[in-house]
Each structure stands twice: as C-alpha cells, then as structure tokens.
Amino acid sequence: MLIESERHGQHAVLILNRPEKLNALSYELIDELMDRLNALELDDSVRCLVLTGAGEKAFSAGADIAGFAPDIAASPETAWRNFVMRGQAMTRRIENYPKPIIAAVNGIAFGGGCETMEACSIAIAAEHASFAKPEIRLGFPPPFGGTQRLPRHIGRKRANEMILTGDAISAEEALLIGLVNHVVPAHELLPACLRMADRIAENSAVAVAASLRAVTRGLNVSIDEGLAMEAAQFMVAAASRDVREGTAAFVEKRRAVFEHR
C-alpha cells in the first residue's frame, strides 16, 4: 500500500508510504490518497486527519520526477493533464476538506511535498524538518499550487525567494515566517499532532467544518465577500443543536456536550 492508515481514537493517521523514494508523490500514491480522503470524509467517527510520511527522513521529497518525465517528454498538454491537474486536484482537495488535516512534517518537505503541507489546515514540524521549492532547478515553477498558497502563507517577497532560488529553509525559519504552527522534537511529533486533534475534537464538528469553509473560501476574496461567507457559515452552524447547547452551557457555567463530536 502506498498509503498506510492508523486509527487513534477519533482520528485517522495517513502515512505516505514510499520511504525508499523519500515518499515521493507518484501518480499511484496521489490517486490512493484521494481515495482514502473520500472514504474518511464519509466516516462520521473520524474527527481529524493527520498526514505524515513513512520513516524519519521525509514527509515527502515532492513529485516523482522519473514518473512524470515521460509526460513532459510527450507534450505540454500531456504533462498538464496527467501531472499538473492531478497534483492541483490533490492539494485543492486537502485545502477544502471538511475535516481538519494536520500535517506532521517528519523530515524534508520539498516541492510537491511542501505544497501538500501548505494545503493542510495546520502543520507541525519535527526539529529536523526542512522545506524547499526546488522546481525552479528543473526548469518549471511549482505546479501543485505552490506559487499561489506560499505567498498567502508567508508573503510575496519571502515566497519569491524560496521559489526563485530553490533554497531550503529550516523548521525554525518556517515557524518564524508562519509556514508551520509549531516545531517539536521528532519523538514528540505524532503525539503533538494528536493532542492538537483532540483539542479540536472537543468542539462541535458542525462548527469546525463551518469555520474551515469560512476561512478557506474567504481568504482570497474581498472583505465584504468574506464577511458574507462568514455569515453564511454561521447560519449553517446556527441551524444545529450544537449552537444551542454551546450557548446554554456558557450561561449555565458548565461544559458543553455537543451532539456532533
């Protein structure tokens, strides 16, 4: 299996499983990951997902160059259809997923691996992790959404430096510029991600999904459009029993017991 899965209580851990290739994103791996995401979306017992790589060296070294090279050689149209559209569909799916996906960055996150991490809701990195956009050295720009998401995460000038030089940055620098949420020792990485997932799962699943939609959809529109999206997602949450329970618990000075948890 190119995607291994583990269950930790309410949460699912998905593992990119090509350690001999530094978990490079082959076509088959991307397709299998999409299938797993589709199945887990329908499983109401799963509250959060953690995405990581097998082994201790890499989250993902990026796209499988040897795998897509024949499509590059065939024609730009073939490469766009088989390579670019597949990768963009994967990162778009991750970014728009209705459940939080936490990236556990357990080593290098280069190229498509960095783009995959950028699309996740939250990212926690091991101290030895590093991040890079080396596509420029292969003669093309990042094709899985990196030219769009990275500037939105860290600003245009910092993103341009990473994209145009291909140079790697450390986990500490990634934390400083806002590319990841936390940096922890390697042995603490998965526990830290699961603790984050547990904190999220204390809240209403309806409210969590509505918040994710509001943030993701509103990020790249005008403030007025974003506020309209926020109001629409509030209405979605307000139609659930959870909002009545949450407000009642606050007034009654007790802990809320949400129906959708």
Rank of each mutant, 00 (worst) to 15 (best):
V183D: 03
D167A: 08
L25S: 06
A119V: 04
P143H: 05
N203W: 03
A126N: 01
C114R: 00
A205F: 05
I200Q: 02
D198R: 04
M1Q: 08
H153L: 15
N96P: 00
V13S: 10
N160K: 09
V180I: 10
G53V: 01
K57T: 04
R47H: 09
A66P: 08
S130A: 11
E245Q: 08
H182E: 15
A201M: 07
A231Q: 13
C193G: 12
G178E: 08
E115T: 11
P70N: 06
G112D: 04
P185G: 10
D198T: 03
I223N: 06
E77Q: 11
P191T: 10
R81N: 15
S121I: 01
T116H: 00
R261S: 13
D44H: 10
T247N: 08
V84Y: 00
P19S: 09
N160F: 05
T116A: 10
A129T: 07
M196S: 12
P100E: 08
K57L: 07
L22W: 07
H128Q: 11
R152W: 06
D64S: 13
G226A: 11
R244C: 11
I108K: 00
A125W: 02
S240N: 12
A126G: 09
R81I: 07
R137Q: 15
V183F: 06
R7Y: 02
L25Y: 02
N106L: 04
A207I: 09
N181W: 00
G166K: 06
R195A: 15
P143D: 09
N17R: 02
C120P: 08
V236H: 05
E135C: 15
E115S: 15
A123Q: 10
A58D: 02
V206M: 12
L194I: 13
A248S: 15
A192R: 03
E135Q: 15
A74M: 11
I124T: 01
F250I: 12
A207S: 13
L150Y: 05
A201F: 04
E127P: 04
R47A: 09
D198E: 12
A132P: 05
E32L: 03
E118S: 11
S5G: 03
V236Y: 01
K133F: 15
E230R: 13
N17T: 01
I200A: 09
A89E: 10
R86C: 06
S222I: 06
A132Y: 01
D44G: 10
C120L: 05
R47F: 06
G155H: 03
L51R: 04
M117Q: 12
